[in-house]
Design a binder for these strands. Sequence first.
DNA 1: GAGTGGTCTAGACCACAAG
DNA 2: TTGTGGTCTAGACCACTCA
Lengths: 237, 237
Amino acid sequence: MQNKFLTIYNDLVRQIQRGEYHPGEILPSEHELKETYETSRETIRKALNLLVQNGYIHKVRGKGSVVLDHSKFEFPVSGLTSFKELSEQFGGDIHTTVEQLFLSEPGEELQKALGCEEDIRVWNIVRSREINGERIILDKDYLRQDYVKGLTKEVAEVSIYEFIEEELGLEISFAKKQIVVEEATEEDKKYLDLKEHTQVVVIRSYVYLSDATLFQYTESRHRPDKFQFVDFARRVK
Amino acid sequence: MQNKFLTIYNDLVRQIQRGEYHPGEILPSEHELKETYETSRETIRKALNLLVQNGYIHKVRGKGSVVLDHSKFEFPVSGLTSFKELSEQFGGDIHTTVEQLFLSEPGEELQKALGCEEDIRVWNIVRSREINGERIILDKDYLRQDYVKGLTKEVAEVSIYEFIEEELGLEISFAKKQIVVEEATEEDKKYLDLKEHTQVVVIRSYVYLSDATLFQYTESRHRPDKFQFVDFARRVK
DNA sequence: GAGTGGTCTAGACCACAAG
DNA sequence: TTGTGGTCTAGACCACTCA
Protein backbone atom coordinates (compact mmCIF):
# COMPACT_ATOMS: atom_id res chain seq x y z
CA MET A 1 0.00 0.00 0.00
CA GLN A 2 1.31 3.36 -1.05
CA ASN A 3 1.13 6.64 0.79
CA LYS A 4 -2.35 8.02 0.87
CA PHE A 5 -1.38 11.30 -0.75
CA LEU A 6 0.53 9.50 -3.52
CA THR A 7 -2.46 7.26 -4.19
CA ILE A 8 -4.70 10.30 -4.48
CA TYR A 9 -2.15 12.08 -6.69
CA ASN A 10 -1.91 9.12 -9.05
CA ASP A 11 -5.68 8.80 -9.16
CA LEU A 12 -6.12 12.46 -10.09
CA VAL A 13 -3.35 12.29 -12.71
CA ARG A 14 -5.10 9.30 -14.29
CA GLN A 15 -8.41 11.15 -14.34
CA ILE A 16 -6.84 14.19 -15.97
CA GLN A 17 -5.01 12.08 -18.53
CA ARG A 18 -8.21 10.23 -19.37
CA GLY A 19 -9.87 13.55 -20.05
CA GLU A 20 -12.30 13.38 -17.14
CA TYR A 21 -11.19 16.93 -16.40
CA HIS A 22 -10.45 19.19 -19.35
CA PRO A 23 -7.93 22.05 -19.52
CA GLY A 24 -9.50 25.16 -18.03
CA GLU A 25 -11.92 23.22 -15.85
CA ILE A 26 -11.81 23.41 -12.07
CA LEU A 27 -11.10 20.35 -9.95
CA PRO A 28 -13.48 19.59 -7.07
CA SER A 29 -12.62 21.76 -4.09
CA GLU A 30 -10.27 20.53 -1.39
CA HIS A 31 -13.26 20.14 0.92
CA GLU A 32 -15.06 17.94 -1.62
CA LEU A 33 -11.95 15.87 -2.34
CA LYS A 34 -11.49 15.42 1.39
CA GLU A 35 -14.94 13.81 1.55
CA THR A 36 -14.43 11.79 -1.63
CA TYR A 37 -11.19 10.23 -0.48
CA GLU A 38 -12.22 10.09 3.17
CA THR A 39 -9.12 11.83 4.42
CA SER A 40 -7.98 15.13 5.92
CA ARG A 41 -7.60 18.35 4.00
CA GLU A 42 -3.83 18.55 4.53
CA THR A 43 -3.44 15.17 2.85
CA ILE A 44 -5.50 16.36 -0.12
CA ARG A 45 -3.33 19.47 -0.24
CA LYS A 46 -0.19 17.33 -0.36
CA ALA A 47 -1.56 15.48 -3.37
CA LEU A 48 -2.60 18.73 -5.08
CA ASN A 49 0.83 20.25 -4.46
CA LEU A 50 2.32 17.35 -6.37
CA LEU A 51 -0.06 18.09 -9.25
CA VAL A 52 1.09 21.71 -9.17
CA GLN A 53 4.77 20.75 -9.13
CA ASN A 54 4.31 18.50 -12.12
CA GLY A 55 2.37 21.03 -14.17
CA TYR A 56 -1.03 19.36 -14.12
CA ILE A 57 -2.93 22.10 -12.30
CA HIS A 58 -2.58 25.68 -11.14
CA LYS A 59 -4.20 26.84 -7.93
CA VAL A 60 -5.96 30.18 -7.62
CA ARG A 61 -7.02 31.41 -4.20
CA GLY A 62 -10.73 32.00 -3.93
CA LYS A 63 -11.41 30.08 -7.15
CA GLY A 64 -9.95 26.60 -7.15
CA SER A 65 -7.54 24.29 -8.93
CA VAL A 66 -7.47 24.93 -12.67
CA VAL A 67 -6.56 21.99 -14.90
CA LEU A 68 -3.76 22.81 -17.36
CA ASP A 69 -3.15 21.47 -20.84
CA HIS A 70 -0.56 18.86 -20.02
CA SER A 71 -0.88 17.09 -23.37
CA LYS A 72 1.44 19.55 -25.08
CA PHE A 73 4.32 18.06 -23.13
CA GLU A 74 4.11 14.32 -23.50
CA PHE A 75 7.80 13.65 -22.91
CA PRO A 76 8.48 15.18 -19.50
CA VAL A 77 12.25 14.96 -19.37
CA SER A 78 12.93 17.42 -16.59
CA GLY A 79 14.65 16.02 -13.55
CA LEU A 80 17.36 13.42 -13.46
CA THR A 81 15.78 11.30 -16.15
CA SER A 82 18.11 8.52 -17.14
CA PHE A 83 18.04 6.92 -20.54
CA LYS A 84 16.21 3.93 -19.12
CA GLU A 85 13.32 6.02 -17.83
CA LEU A 86 13.26 7.96 -21.08
CA SER A 87 13.08 4.80 -23.15
CA GLU A 88 10.26 3.44 -21.02
CA GLN A 89 8.21 6.52 -21.83
CA PHE A 90 9.25 6.33 -25.45
CA GLY A 91 8.07 2.78 -25.91
CA GLY A 92 9.93 2.37 -29.19
CA ASP A 93 12.37 -0.32 -30.26
CA ILE A 94 15.46 0.42 -28.21
CA HIS A 95 18.94 -0.99 -27.87
CA THR A 96 22.10 -0.03 -25.98
CA THR A 97 25.60 -0.96 -27.14
CA VAL A 98 28.56 -0.65 -24.77
CA GLU A 99 31.30 0.66 -27.06
CA GLN A 100 33.96 1.12 -24.38
CA LEU A 101 34.38 0.36 -20.67
CA PHE A 102 37.68 0.71 -18.84
CA LEU A 103 39.39 2.19 -15.79
CA SER A 104 41.92 4.98 -16.10
CA GLU A 105 43.64 7.74 -14.23
CA PRO A 106 41.76 10.99 -14.61
CA GLY A 107 43.37 13.54 -16.90
CA GLU A 108 43.57 17.14 -15.89
CA GLU A 109 40.15 18.10 -17.32
CA LEU A 110 38.45 15.13 -15.72
CA GLN A 111 40.03 15.89 -12.33
CA LYS A 112 38.50 19.31 -12.58
CA ALA A 113 35.09 18.09 -13.73
CA LEU A 114 34.92 15.48 -10.97
CA GLY A 115 36.70 17.54 -8.35
CA CYS A 116 39.01 14.64 -7.47
CA GLU A 117 42.71 13.92 -7.13
CA GLU A 118 44.82 12.08 -9.66
CA ASP A 119 45.36 9.06 -7.42
CA ILE A 120 41.74 8.03 -7.88
CA ARG A 121 40.72 5.72 -10.69
CA VAL A 122 37.83 6.64 -12.95
CA TRP A 123 35.48 4.48 -14.99
CA ASN A 124 35.26 5.47 -18.67
CA ILE A 125 32.08 4.28 -20.32
CA VAL A 126 30.91 4.96 -23.84
CA ARG A 127 27.48 3.73 -24.89
CA SER A 128 25.46 4.26 -28.04
CA ARG A 129 21.67 4.24 -27.91
CA GLU A 130 19.69 2.91 -30.82
CA ILE A 131 16.05 3.90 -31.19
CA ASN A 132 13.96 2.42 -33.98
CA GLY A 133 17.05 1.22 -35.80
CA GLU A 134 19.05 4.44 -35.62
CA ARG A 135 21.93 5.19 -33.27
CA ILE A 136 21.02 8.70 -32.13
CA ILE A 137 22.49 9.15 -28.64
CA LEU A 138 26.07 8.69 -27.45
CA ASP A 139 26.48 8.62 -23.67
CA LYS A 140 29.96 9.17 -22.27
CA ASP A 141 30.07 8.54 -18.51
CA TYR A 142 32.92 9.08 -16.08
CA LEU A 143 32.44 7.69 -12.56
CA ARG A 144 34.70 7.76 -9.52
CA GLN A 145 35.81 4.21 -8.89
CA ASP A 146 36.19 4.74 -5.14
CA TYR A 147 32.39 5.07 -4.99
CA VAL A 148 31.35 2.71 -7.77
CA LYS A 149 33.06 -0.68 -7.68
CA GLY A 150 32.45 -3.74 -9.76
CA LEU A 151 30.98 -2.16 -12.88
CA THR A 152 30.55 -4.64 -15.73
CA LYS A 153 29.48 -4.59 -19.36
CA GLU A 154 26.24 -6.31 -18.38
CA VAL A 155 25.42 -3.54 -15.92
CA ALA A 156 26.25 -0.82 -18.44
CA GLU A 157 23.92 -2.43 -20.96
CA VAL A 158 20.95 -2.25 -18.63
CA SER A 159 21.16 0.68 -16.23
CA ILE A 160 24.13 2.03 -14.30
CA TYR A 161 21.82 4.09 -12.10
CA GLU A 162 19.83 1.05 -11.10
CA PHE A 163 23.08 -0.75 -10.24
CA ILE A 164 24.34 2.16 -8.16
CA GLU A 165 21.13 2.61 -6.26
CA GLU A 166 19.97 -0.97 -5.84
CA GLU A 167 23.20 -2.98 -5.74
CA LEU A 168 25.57 -0.48 -4.17
CA GLY A 169 22.93 1.24 -2.04
CA LEU A 170 24.16 4.72 -2.95
CA GLU A 171 21.58 7.44 -3.21
CA ILE A 172 21.70 9.74 -6.21
CA SER A 173 20.36 13.07 -5.11
CA PHE A 174 20.68 15.90 -7.59
CA ALA A 175 22.44 17.11 -10.72
CA LYS A 176 23.58 20.24 -12.47
CA LYS A 177 23.02 20.19 -16.21
CA GLN A 178 24.23 22.29 -19.11
CA ILE A 179 22.87 22.03 -22.64
CA VAL A 180 24.82 23.30 -25.66
CA VAL A 181 25.22 22.55 -29.36
CA GLU A 182 28.65 21.54 -30.61
CA GLU A 183 30.40 20.26 -33.71
CA ALA A 184 30.26 16.49 -33.96
CA THR A 185 33.54 14.78 -33.09
CA GLU A 186 35.11 11.84 -34.93
CA GLU A 187 33.82 9.68 -32.09
CA ASP A 188 30.27 10.93 -32.65
CA LYS A 189 30.56 10.14 -36.35
CA LYS A 190 31.93 6.70 -35.59
CA TYR A 191 29.28 5.61 -33.13
CA LEU A 192 26.17 7.50 -34.31
CA ASP A 193 24.09 7.47 -37.47
CA LEU A 194 24.47 11.19 -37.95
CA LYS A 195 23.39 11.23 -41.60
CA GLU A 196 23.84 14.75 -42.91
CA HIS A 197 24.17 16.30 -39.45
CA THR A 198 27.48 17.90 -38.52
CA GLN A 199 26.47 19.07 -35.03
CA VAL A 200 25.23 17.37 -31.87
CA VAL A 201 23.31 18.57 -28.83
CA VAL A 202 25.44 17.97 -25.73
CA ILE A 203 23.98 17.61 -22.24
CA ARG A 204 26.73 17.81 -19.63
CA SER A 205 25.64 16.55 -16.20
CA TYR A 206 27.38 16.70 -12.87
CA VAL A 207 25.72 14.15 -10.59
CA TYR A 208 25.84 14.24 -6.80
CA LEU A 209 25.15 11.70 -4.06
CA SER A 210 22.94 12.51 -1.11
CA ASP A 211 25.91 13.61 1.00
CA ALA A 212 26.61 16.21 -1.69
CA THR A 213 29.71 14.49 -3.07
CA LEU A 214 30.20 14.74 -6.83
CA PHE A 215 30.76 11.24 -8.16
CA GLN A 216 29.84 11.29 -11.85
CA TYR A 217 30.31 13.43 -14.92
CA THR A 218 28.35 12.60 -18.05
CA GLU A 219 28.11 13.85 -21.60
CA SER A 220 24.96 12.81 -23.40
CA ARG A 221 25.41 13.59 -27.10
CA HIS A 222 22.22 13.66 -29.19
CA ARG A 223 21.56 13.86 -32.91
CA PRO A 224 19.86 17.27 -33.13
CA ASP A 225 16.72 16.23 -35.00
CA LYS A 226 15.82 13.71 -32.31
CA PHE A 227 16.58 15.91 -29.34
CA GLN A 228 13.92 17.36 -27.12
CA PHE A 229 14.00 18.97 -23.71
CA VAL A 230 10.95 20.04 -21.74
CA ASP A 231 10.89 22.41 -18.81
CA PHE A 232 8.22 23.72 -16.51
CA ALA A 233 9.13 26.97 -14.81
CA ARG A 234 7.30 28.69 -12.01
CA ARG A 235 7.68 32.39 -11.36
CA VAL A 236 9.47 32.88 -8.07
CA LYS A 237 7.80 36.19 -7.20
CA MET B 1 4.68 40.56 8.63
CA GLN B 2 5.51 37.59 6.45
CA ASN B 3 4.31 34.03 6.72
CA LYS B 4 5.73 32.23 9.69
CA PHE B 5 7.28 29.46 7.62
CA LEU B 6 8.85 31.98 5.24
CA THR B 7 10.33 33.90 8.14
CA ILE B 8 11.85 30.72 9.53
CA TYR B 9 13.12 29.72 6.07
CA ASN B 10 14.81 33.08 5.56
CA ASP B 11 16.31 32.93 9.02
CA LEU B 12 17.79 29.48 8.40
CA VAL B 13 19.11 30.51 4.96
CA ARG B 14 20.84 33.48 6.54
CA GLN B 15 22.42 31.29 9.20
CA ILE B 16 23.68 28.81 6.59
CA GLN B 17 25.05 31.57 4.38
CA ARG B 18 26.83 33.14 7.34
CA GLY B 19 28.52 29.82 7.97
CA GLU B 20 26.78 29.14 11.29
CA TYR B 21 26.10 25.69 9.86
CA HIS B 22 28.78 24.12 7.66
CA PRO B 23 28.32 21.69 4.77
CA GLY B 24 27.99 18.18 6.18
CA GLU B 25 26.69 19.36 9.54
CA ILE B 26 23.21 18.49 10.80
CA LEU B 27 20.60 21.14 11.51
CA PRO B 28 18.78 21.03 14.86
CA SER B 29 15.98 18.46 14.74
CA GLU B 30 12.46 19.45 13.78
CA HIS B 31 11.44 19.04 17.42
CA GLU B 32 14.17 21.42 18.59
CA LEU B 33 13.38 23.97 15.88
CA LYS B 34 9.73 23.77 16.87
CA GLU B 35 10.69 24.86 20.38
CA THR B 36 13.17 27.49 19.18
CA TYR B 37 10.67 29.20 16.90
CA GLU B 38 7.69 28.53 19.17
CA THR B 39 5.58 26.98 16.44
CA SER B 40 4.20 23.62 15.31
CA ARG B 41 6.23 20.91 13.68
CA GLU B 42 4.32 21.11 10.37
CA THR B 43 5.29 24.76 10.06
CA ILE B 44 8.94 23.89 10.66
CA ARG B 45 8.62 21.17 8.04
CA LYS B 46 7.26 23.67 5.53
CA ALA B 47 10.31 25.87 6.07
CA LEU B 48 12.67 22.90 5.81
CA ASN B 49 10.99 21.74 2.60
CA LEU B 50 11.80 25.13 1.10
CA LEU B 51 15.43 24.66 2.10
CA VAL B 52 15.40 21.28 0.36
CA GLN B 53 13.81 22.70 -2.80
CA ASN B 54 16.44 25.39 -3.04
CA GLY B 55 19.37 23.08 -2.51
CA TYR B 56 20.40 24.20 0.98
CA ILE B 57 19.84 20.95 2.86
CA HIS B 58 19.13 17.30 2.25
CA LYS B 59 16.95 15.34 4.67
CA VAL B 60 17.74 11.81 5.80
CA ARG B 61 15.16 9.85 7.75
CA GLY B 62 16.38 8.76 11.15
CA LYS B 63 19.36 11.11 10.98
CA GLY B 64 18.39 14.69 10.30
CA SER B 65 18.81 17.58 7.88
CA VAL B 66 22.29 17.67 6.33
CA VAL B 67 23.59 21.07 5.24
CA LEU B 68 24.81 21.06 1.61
CA ASP B 69 27.53 23.10 -0.03
CA HIS B 70 25.29 25.65 -1.65
CA SER B 71 28.15 27.68 -3.13
CA LYS B 72 28.50 25.03 -5.86
CA PHE B 73 25.17 26.08 -7.33
CA GLU B 74 25.61 29.78 -7.74
CA PHE B 75 24.74 29.73 -11.41
CA PRO B 76 21.90 31.49 -13.19
CA VAL B 77 18.64 29.88 -12.23
CA SER B 78 16.55 28.43 -15.02
CA GLY B 79 13.01 29.61 -14.55
CA LEU B 80 11.29 32.29 -16.54
CA THR B 81 14.45 34.11 -17.55
CA SER B 82 13.57 36.77 -20.06
CA PHE B 83 16.04 38.19 -22.49
CA LYS B 84 16.42 41.26 -20.37
CA GLU B 85 17.44 39.30 -17.28
CA LEU B 86 19.73 37.18 -19.42
CA SER B 87 21.44 40.19 -20.93
CA GLU B 88 22.00 41.75 -17.52
CA GLN B 89 23.92 38.67 -16.46
CA PHE B 90 25.72 38.61 -19.79
CA GLY B 91 27.04 42.12 -19.49
CA GLY B 92 28.07 42.32 -23.15
CA ASP B 93 27.25 44.90 -25.77
CA ILE B 94 23.59 44.29 -26.49
CA HIS B 95 20.97 45.68 -28.84
CA THR B 96 17.37 44.81 -29.70
CA THR B 97 15.79 45.61 -33.06
CA VAL B 98 12.02 45.43 -33.48
CA GLU B 99 11.70 43.94 -36.95
CA GLN B 100 7.92 43.64 -36.97
CA LEU B 101 5.03 44.66 -34.73
CA PHE B 102 1.42 44.38 -35.82
CA LEU B 103 -2.02 43.06 -34.86
CA SER B 104 -3.61 40.22 -36.77
CA GLU B 105 -6.27 37.56 -36.56
CA PRO B 106 -4.78 34.31 -35.32
CA GLY B 107 -4.35 31.61 -37.95
CA GLU B 108 -5.31 28.06 -37.22
CA GLU B 109 -1.98 27.08 -35.67
CA LEU B 110 -1.84 30.15 -33.49
CA GLN B 111 -5.40 29.60 -32.29
CA LYS B 112 -4.28 26.16 -31.18
CA ALA B 113 -1.06 27.37 -29.56
CA LEU B 114 -2.83 30.13 -27.68
CA GLY B 115 -6.04 28.22 -27.10
CA CYS B 116 -8.15 31.17 -28.28
CA GLU B 117 -10.95 31.87 -30.74
CA GLU B 118 -10.50 33.54 -34.12
CA ASP B 119 -12.38 36.69 -33.11
CA ILE B 120 -9.51 37.70 -30.84
CA ARG B 121 -6.69 39.85 -32.13
CA VAL B 122 -3.11 38.84 -31.54
CA TRP B 123 0.06 40.90 -31.37
CA ASN B 124 2.79 39.66 -33.69
CA ILE B 125 6.23 40.79 -32.61
CA VAL B 126 9.52 39.87 -34.20
CA ARG B 127 12.70 41.08 -32.55
CA SER B 128 16.34 40.35 -33.29
CA ARG B 129 18.89 40.42 -30.51
CA GLU B 130 22.40 41.59 -31.24
CA ILE B 131 25.19 40.64 -28.86
CA ASN B 132 28.70 41.95 -29.42
CA GLY B 133 27.87 42.96 -32.97
CA GLU B 134 26.20 39.72 -34.06
CA ARG B 135 22.47 39.08 -34.41
CA ILE B 136 22.18 35.68 -32.74
CA ILE B 137 18.66 35.47 -31.31
CA LEU B 138 15.31 35.93 -33.05
CA ASP B 139 12.35 36.29 -30.70
CA LYS B 140 8.90 35.76 -32.18
CA ASP B 141 6.18 36.68 -29.69
CA TYR B 142 2.44 36.25 -30.01
CA LEU B 143 0.30 37.91 -27.32
CA ARG B 144 -3.45 38.00 -26.87
CA GLN B 145 -4.54 41.58 -27.42
CA ASP B 146 -7.53 41.25 -25.09
CA TYR B 147 -5.01 40.98 -22.24
CA VAL B 148 -2.22 43.21 -23.49
CA LYS B 149 -3.34 46.55 -24.86
CA GLY B 150 -1.28 49.49 -26.01
CA LEU B 151 1.90 47.72 -27.00
CA THR B 152 4.34 50.03 -28.79
CA LYS B 153 7.66 49.73 -30.54
CA GLU B 154 9.29 51.54 -27.64
CA VAL B 155 7.98 48.96 -25.17
CA ALA B 156 9.10 46.08 -27.37
CA GLU B 157 12.60 47.54 -27.54
CA VAL B 158 12.98 47.53 -23.78
CA SER B 159 11.02 44.77 -22.05
CA ILE B 160 7.52 43.50 -22.76
CA TYR B 161 7.45 41.61 -19.45
CA GLU B 162 8.23 44.74 -17.49
CA PHE B 163 5.43 46.56 -19.33
CA ILE B 164 2.95 43.76 -18.66
CA GLU B 165 3.74 43.44 -14.98
CA GLU B 166 4.39 47.04 -14.04
CA GLU B 167 2.18 49.04 -16.42
CA LEU B 168 -0.72 46.65 -16.92
CA GLY B 169 -0.54 45.06 -13.46
CA LEU B 170 -0.85 41.53 -14.81
CA GLU B 171 0.99 38.80 -12.96
CA ILE B 172 3.00 36.32 -14.97
CA SER B 173 2.91 33.04 -13.14
CA PHE B 174 4.48 30.14 -14.95
CA ALA B 175 5.63 28.85 -18.32
CA LYS B 176 6.04 25.58 -20.12
CA LYS B 177 9.08 25.36 -22.35
CA GLN B 178 10.19 23.01 -25.06
CA ILE B 179 13.69 23.05 -26.54
CA VAL B 180 14.42 21.51 -29.94
CA VAL B 181 16.79 21.97 -32.88
CA GLU B 182 15.28 22.81 -36.26
CA GLU B 183 16.28 23.83 -39.76
CA ALA B 184 16.69 27.57 -40.08
CA THR B 185 13.83 29.27 -41.92
CA GLU B 186 14.12 32.04 -44.52
CA GLU B 187 13.12 34.44 -41.77
CA ASP B 188 15.96 33.22 -39.55
CA LYS B 189 18.41 33.74 -42.40
CA LYS B 190 17.03 37.20 -43.05
CA TYR B 191 17.19 38.53 -39.51
CA LEU B 192 20.13 36.62 -38.02
CA ASP B 193 23.85 36.47 -38.75
CA LEU B 194 23.79 32.71 -39.13
CA LYS B 195 27.15 32.43 -40.91
CA GLU B 196 27.62 28.80 -41.92
CA HIS B 197 24.87 27.51 -39.62
CA THR B 198 21.82 25.89 -41.19
CA GLN B 199 20.03 25.00 -37.97
CA VAL B 200 18.73 26.96 -34.99
CA VAL B 201 17.88 26.03 -31.40
CA VAL B 202 14.20 26.81 -30.82
CA ILE B 203 12.74 27.46 -27.36
CA ARG B 204 8.96 27.38 -27.50
CA SER B 205 7.32 28.92 -24.44
CA TYR B 206 3.71 28.96 -23.37
CA VAL B 207 3.31 31.69 -20.76
CA TYR B 208 0.45 31.80 -18.25
CA LEU B 209 -0.94 34.50 -15.99
CA SER B 210 -1.68 33.83 -12.33
CA ASP B 211 -5.30 32.99 -13.08
CA ALA B 212 -3.96 30.19 -15.29
CA THR B 213 -4.95 31.82 -18.59
CA LEU B 214 -2.55 31.27 -21.44
CA PHE B 215 -1.82 34.68 -22.91
CA GLN B 216 1.46 34.39 -24.78
CA TYR B 217 3.25 32.02 -27.09
CA THR B 218 6.88 32.67 -27.90
CA GLU B 219 9.52 31.17 -30.12
CA SER B 220 13.06 32.14 -29.19
CA ARG B 221 15.35 31.08 -32.02
CA HIS B 222 19.07 30.92 -31.22
CA ARG B 223 22.16 30.46 -33.33
CA PRO B 224 23.39 27.09 -32.05
CA ASP B 225 26.97 28.06 -31.20
CA LYS B 226 25.79 30.79 -28.84
CA PHE B 227 23.05 28.80 -27.14
CA GLN B 228 23.29 27.62 -23.56
CA PHE B 229 20.76 26.26 -21.09
CA VAL B 230 21.43 25.44 -17.43
CA ASP B 231 19.31 23.28 -15.18
CA PHE B 232 19.34 22.11 -11.56
CA ALA B 233 17.48 18.86 -11.04
CA ARG B 234 16.50 17.07 -7.89
CA ARG B 235 15.82 13.35 -7.73
CA VAL B 236 12.11 12.70 -7.31
CA LYS B 237 12.52 9.22 -5.79
C1' DG C 1 15.42 2.12 23.15
C1' DA C 2 15.79 6.90 22.06
C1' DG C 3 15.77 10.12 18.53
C1' DT C 4 15.00 11.29 13.81
C1' DG C 5 12.08 12.55 9.85
C1' DG C 6 7.47 10.90 7.06
C1' DT C 7 2.68 10.70 7.22
C1' DC C 8 -1.88 11.75 8.79
C1' DT C 9 -5.76 13.86 11.43
C1' DA C 10 -9.45 17.26 12.83
C1' DG C 11 -9.90 21.09 13.78
C1' DA C 12 -9.13 26.71 13.33
C1' DC C 13 -8.66 31.41 11.33
C1' DC C 14 -7.38 34.07 7.36
C1' DA C 15 -7.29 36.36 2.42
C1' DC C 16 -9.40 36.37 -1.74
C1' DA C 17 -13.11 35.74 -5.58
C1' DA C 18 -17.71 35.79 -7.06
C1' DG C 19 -22.57 36.35 -6.94
C1' DT D 1 -22.37 36.09 2.17
C1' DT D 2 -20.59 31.84 0.64
C1' DG D 3 -17.00 29.15 -0.99
C1' DT D 4 -12.36 28.81 -2.25
C1' DG D 5 -7.42 27.96 -1.19
C1' DG D 6 -3.35 29.49 2.38
C1' DT D 7 -1.68 29.02 6.83
C1' DC D 8 -1.27 27.11 11.37
C1' DT D 9 -1.92 24.08 15.46
C1' DA D 10 -1.35 20.05 18.69
C1' DG D 11 -1.59 16.09 18.74
C1' DA D 12 -0.74 10.79 16.78
C1' DC D 13 1.53 6.67 14.74
C1' DC D 14 5.03 4.90 11.71
C1' DA D 15 9.84 3.67 9.55
C1' DC D 16 14.30 4.37 9.99
C1' DT D 17 19.18 5.18 12.19
C1' DC D 18 22.33 4.64 15.74
C1' DA D 19 24.22 3.58 19.98
